[in-house]
């Protein structure tokens, strides 16, 4: 795994805040996010629903509805400032610099076109025009994502493939223009465990082979432990603890991180013992659980482990089963 000393980030997010305009006034979805990811590295974004992890993933590609979204701070991707790009230059960013895959592969694929049509379309967007080259490239992409019999797959429609195969096709399309960063938003949540294992292995291998950086959004801490190099734990729109996976899973400092870990029923959890539960002060996340300061100050626990300063009492990790 890469150490901080020699890391040269390909993507740096600094002091990023994202606000949504809603009918009830502005809603602060992300505040003071500072993170980076280096080539070949896998960064896990983990947290519960509504914590802003998907918003962060989408913001990296500027996929949020621009009419009602306000960005502050900066997203620096390999020398480009994503937030200052004009709308017209976004298509050249998406796909070739940074790509994204989503939870449900069926919704990412068009049901009325064959795999071949969709994959070749993505390849020709990258500038390859010669039909034979496009075909050869599409075969090699399908082979890279581990699909057998690629010639036949190209002629098939999405409904003819299993969930795992579809997700492989989606990954192939995302890789078509060799992006430097891939954002994966819960790509294995809808899959069975055995399929999930294969997809995780594939993603890890792609990062090692091509030096692509992967940002893996998930709610599953066990998956983070299996796959990621670094992790950022998010809560109500802020990062509360981040650093190397080993350090954080070895000794979680923030009570919320500890609570999340203790809430997972693993294969070793003692059966009679109630699981840890976390009660939120504010339902739905409005008001942000009480972090008033927007400063992103972190204490360094170790060179690879940072935890947000103070204000830790806002999270209640409960010992009893279902008190409110």
């Amino acid at each position: 795994m890469t150490t901080t000393h020699e890391r040269v980030p390909i993507l740096s997010i600094s002091d990023l805040s994202v606000d949504y305009e809603t009918d009830y006034g502005p809603f602060s979805a992300l505040r003071g996010i500072t993170l980076d990811v280096a080539p070949g590295e896998i960064l896990g974004l983990v947290g519960e629903s509504g914590c802003g992890k998907s918003t962060l993933g989408r913001s990296l590609l500027r996929l949020n509805d621009e009419a009602s979204t306000r960005y502050q701070g900066s997203i620096h991707l390999d020398g480009t400032e994503v937030l200052s790009l004009k709308d017209t230059s976004l298509p050249s960013l998406r796909g070739s610099e940074i790509a994204m895959i989503f939870q449900d592969p069926l919704r990412s694929l068009n049901p009325v076109f064959t795999i071949g049509t969709q994959l070749k379309n993505a390849i020709s967007l990258g500038g390859i025009t010669d039909k034979r080259k496009v075909h050869a490239e599409s075969i090699s992409l399908l082979e890279r994502v581990g699909l057998d019999d690629p010639e036949r797959r190209l002629r098939q429609y999405p409904h003819q493939l299993s969930g795992g195969q579809r997700q492989r096709v989606v990954i192939a399309i995302a890789l078509a223009q060799s992006p430097k960063v891939l954002v994966a938003d819960e790509p294995t949540t809808a899959l069975d465990v055995t399929t999930q294992k294969q997809i995780l292995k594939l993603l890890r291998q792609l990062c090692t082979d091509t030096g692509m950086a992967l940002i893996f959004v998930t709610h599953d801490l066990a998956v983070v432990w299996q796959l990621c190099d670094r992790v950022a734990v998010m809560y109500f729109g802020i990062v509360i603890e981040h650093g190397a996976v080993e350090d954080i899973f070895d000794a979680p400092v923030h009570p919320y991180t500890g609570g999340l870990l203790a809430a997972v029923p693993s294969l070793e959890t003692e059966k009679g013992r109630p699981l840890a539960t976390i009660e939120r002060r504010h339902d739905g996340g409005q008001g942000g659980g009480g972090w008033d300061d927007d400063s992103a100050e972190f204490d360094a626990v170790s060179p690879n482990h940072f935890v947000r300063k103070a204000q830790t009492s806002r999270v209640d990790v409960e010992r009893s089963s279902n008190d409110c």
Binding site: L221, G259, V264, L267
Partner: peptide, 19 residues
Amino acid sequence: KTLLTAVPTLPRTYGFTEV
């Protein structure tokens, strides 16, 4: 057996005392 080996696991069990 296949199912059990495919389950992603945490490095250890986390309890309340460590929180």
